[in-house]
Amino acid sequence: MIGSTLFYVQRYSATYLLAYTIWIASFLIVNNPLEYNSWTAFTNQIDFLVLTSLAAAVSIIHAFIGLWTIGTDYFTSRTLGFLSVSFSKYADTIRGAYTILFSVLGLSIFAIILLTIWS
């Protein structure tokens, strides 16, 4: 069950982010060269604030699933053992450190996006 949950979350988040990217990209293309007034007006709209906050949350979730998959593929005693036998002993520690790193980075990015757009 959890396998299909992660699968769906990854695909739905991808679709939302695709739609969001197209929205932002089309604004930037139509308003090229970008002027301060039009950009500020756009980024102060309520729909921009809500959709961007959602995009921030969704992209962090999407990234976390992908990065976790990478961790469980490459930072294991088996895979690290292919690279160097001495590394493989520390596989769990390395994977743990990597998980903490991307989690902290991801949550910080999410927090900063919210702070930036809402103030």
Binding site: M1, I2, G3, S4, L6, F7, T69, T72, D73
Partner: peptide, 10 residues
């Protein structure tokens, strides 16, 4: 038996 995140979804 195959529904966990590893068996098939990798």
């Amino acid at each position: 038996d195959l529904s966990d995140p590893f068996s098939v979804y990798r």
